[in-house]
């Protein structure tokens, strides 16, 4: 061991020259709460977005969920259809695999783009019908919905030297 370290320092100095050069490189970090990255168009975010108009209550999403997490209660409607009375999921148990969105035959379910998911109570993580309901201000992810892809902003990529913009 001693012989290996003899006359040493050269390899270490070479490495240090490397780290020294890094001082003059472009910054790659993002000051998170102030600056934010634009997410991928297919981002599988925290919440689901549910389109009431398109949903027929077939419960394919509930069957495809690996966690058995989606709860749907329907009743017979007036015009040979079903009324969705309850559409609920516990996002604390959800693994955001996106299989429900992929399996939906009517394009009624979307993944959302949110990702700041902390809350003070576990009960707040349960997303009921009203919280899931699609409104124009909710951004929907293009995951398994390629039609939405052109309308979404381009993802920030570190390889292009992009470290996020000042939003908020």
């Amino acid at each position: 061991m001693a012989s290996m370290l003899e006359g040493s320092g050269l390899g270490l100095l070479k490495g240090m020259a490397m780290t020294f050069r890094h001082l003059f490189r472009r910054r790659i970090t993002t000051q998170y709460p102030e600056q934010k990255l634009t997410l991928s168009k297919r981002f599988r975010g925290y919440t689901l977005v549910w389109d009431k108009e398109r949903c027929t209550g077939c419960a394919t999403c509930a069957k495809s969920c690996p966690q058995g997490n989606i709860e749907i209660v329907t009743s017979k409607g007036t015009e040979n259809d079903y009324v969705v009375e309850k559409f609920q999921l516990d996002s604390g148990r959800c693994i955001f695999c996106g299989l429900c969105v992929e399996s939906c035959p009517y394009d009624a379910l979307f993944l959302g783009m949110e990702y700041e998911r902390s809350s003070y109570r576990r009960g707040d993580l349960v997303l009921s019908r009203d919280k899931l309901l699609f409104t124009p201000d909710k951004q929907r992810s293009a995951y398994a919905r390629p039609k939405l892809e052109p309308g979404l902003p381009r993802q920030t990529l570190l390889i292009e030297g992009d470290t996020g913009s000042k939003k908020r």
Binding site: L39, R42, I95, L158, I159
Partner: peptide
């Protein structure tokens, strides 16, 4: 991080 950016682009997640 650059690789994860690419994975996020194709499947929407960075780990799973």
């Amino acid at each position: 991080e650059k690789i994860l950016d690419m994975f996020e682009m194709v499947c929407g997640q960075r780990l799973t």
